[in-house]
């Protein structure tokens, strides 16, 4: 037995189960996803074809639609989530510990359920029938009726609305914790100068929360890139005329319904690059960040 192994045997033994599972089911699969994206892999086999899959994707109108829908969903939903989380957390801050705990739990409770289940409820709310709840509510103020998930123009809107109308409980919890740890002196100084509540919030609170905001931006963006269950359930996996198709939905159907594994892997690589780009951007802006 080599000396190193005898000395460090226990350490390697402690790491072994997790690390070997990680190598087999995460590390090698990521590498293989890249390899498959350069192959014509399908149910009947495949060979190396260079960047042909990516060329196919660049010209495929359905993939472009999926990319566009995913980006649009992400931009709108993430912006709404950040603003909602920030405003709600700011509003519960003055309420004292006990109430803060109550509200954090209240806003987080709807999020313990699965994406499938949540999407089923929204499908029911946005169903195009006269007994659909969204249509009734909007009808009361003279709007509609809308076809929602039954129409290629309105299906994506219904999917986006379903996400925007959910208070982002995770963000509320993080912002709320961050606000509680802000230094009181700055606010006292602002009070001396006679600043109003909005000025204090906009000039002190919001800038000081920048690290939390950046962190949430990255997490929410990467999560939104992965949108799948919502469209799978609400619009039967893509909606009329692919109105709600997204990248992950298209990966799923391309690979597991049509057996074009190579092409689907190329899409997965695009998704991977998008996620890494967002993470890198965050690191950069954190490094150039002015510390308060």
């Amino acid at each position: 037995m080599p000396a190193a192994l005898r000395r460090h045997g226990w350490s390697y033994l402690f790491v072994l189960p997790t690390f070997s599972l990680f190598v087999v089911f995460t590390l090698l699969p990521v590498a293989q996803a890249f390899a498959l994206s350069l192959q014509s892999a399908s149910v009947v086999g495949g060979e190396w074809i260079g960047f042909e899959n990516f060329a196919t994707l660049a010209e495929d109108p359905v993939f472009r639609q999926a990319l566009g829908n995913t980006v649009l969903f992400t931009v709108v939903v993430v912006a709404a989530q950040i603003v909602l989380a920030l405003v709600v957390a700011s509003l519960i801050q003055p309420l004292g510990r006990k109430n803060q705990t109550f509200y954090r739990a209240l806003f987080y409770l709807p999020l313990v359920n699965s994406a499938i289940l949540v999407a089923m409820v929204w499908r029911w709310i946005f169903n195009p029938n006269p007994f659909g709840l969204a249509n009734t509510a909007l009808g009361a103020v003279g709007l509609g009726p809308f076809l929602w998930i039954g129409s290629s123009d309105e299906a994506l809107l219904a999917v986006i609305l379903s996400a925007v109308l959910t208070i982002p409980g995770g963000g509320v919890v993080l912002y709320s914790a961050a606000i509680n740890s802000l230094p009181r002196e700055l606010y006292e100084a602002a009070d001396v100068e006679g600043a109003g509540w909005f000025t204090k919030w906009w000039r002190i609170t919001v800038p000081l929360l920048k690290p939390t905001t950046l962190y949430l931006l990255v997490i929410y963006t990467i999560l939104a890139f992965q949108i799948f269950e919502r469209v799978y359930v609400m619009t039967n996996g893509g909606g009329p005329n692919n109105a709600t198709i997204t990248i992950v939905q298209l990966i799923y159907s391309t690979a597991f319904q049509f057996g074009r594994y190579g092409l689907a892997s190329a899409m997965a690589v695009v998704l991977f690059v998008m996620a890494v780009a967002v993470a890198v951007l965050q690191f950069r802006s954190l490094r150039s960040d002015v510390e308060y």
Binding site: P29, V30, F225, I251, Y252, V276
Partner: peptide, 26 residues
């Protein structure tokens, strides 16, 4: 140790769907 931990942490932001097809093959 540090290389292993770095490898582990660097995959934290990888979307799980990236590994879906290879895992299916395995």
């Amino acid at each position: 140790r540090d290389v292993m931990f770095w490898l582990v942490v660097s995959t934290l932001t990888v979307p799980a769907q990236v590994t879906l097809i290879p895992v299916f093959f395995i």
